[in-house]
Design a protein around this nucleic acid. Structure first.
Length: 194
DNA sequence: TATACGATCACCT
DNA sequence: GGTGATCGTATAC
């Protein structure tokens, strides 16, 4: 088991998004391994994508203009965090939002961190998986290719014909941005958000 | 300095 | 299927 290398992230954002499906997201929290297979992602790009935080270069979005392979964590709706992996070469902004994982290791701890929530819903949303894994702003900017507390391991690649693409969730306003099928799901039976 | 809003979730009906 | 929670960030003043 080894960290995905920087070259994995340093390419087209859409290619990284598809390739991340099926890989294992690992969080080492208080000495315990928590992990799950990535089963839902969304691609966000830069100047050509009004739905992306990187559409404008601000202090918050600056991380997406930096080298690939780093974590971009942001706070949303007053109570949740979302985890992204920065893509593309430096100065070319892009990121993949990790929206859901299938729990593999540390299930009892995931349950402890989300009391009263059925197993099925522990990590089936971007804010949920951050809560379950203990991902907060403290991890913003960490290097996923070298970090000992948050990284991604190579697992089984997913055949292209098992991946479903749909429009992204929660994208409003810009018509072109809303139309783009840059949300990727695996397996196809996963929640479709309808 | 002030204000509007958001890449969401849980709980209600 | 609808709505309230709750606050960092961007943008306007």
């Amino acid at each position: 088991m080894t960290h995905l290398p920087r070259s994995f992230f340093q390419r087209d954002t859409l290619a990284v998004a598809r390739a991340l499906l099926g890989q294992r997201l690992v969080r080492v929290f208080e000495g315990e391994r928590l992990s799950g297979l990535i089963c839902e992602v969304e691609a966000y790009r830069g100047a050509d994508d009004r739905a992306s935080h990187a559409y404008r270069r601000t202090p918050r979005s600056a991380i997406m203009y930096g080298p690939p392979g780093h974590a971009y964590v942001y706070f949303i709706y007053g109570m949740y965090f979302c985890l992204n992996a920065v893509t593309e070469a430096a100065e070319r902004p892009g990121a993949v939002l990790i929206r859901a994982i299938l729990p593999q290791e540390g299930l009892p701890i995931l349950c402890d961190r989300r009391p009263g929530i059925p197993d099925r819903h522990l990590t089936d949303g971007p804010g949920k998986l951050c809560q379950a894994l203990g991902v907060t702003l403290a991890l913003n900017g960490v290097d996923l290719t070298t970090s000992a507390e948050l990284f991604i391991e190579a697992a089984e690649p997913i055949p292209a014909d098992e991946i479903v693409a749909t429009p992204r969730v929660g994208v409003r306003g810009d018509e072109a941005a809303r139309r783009r099928p840059w949300r990727f799901l695996w397996p196809p039976i996963a929640d479709t958000g309808t």
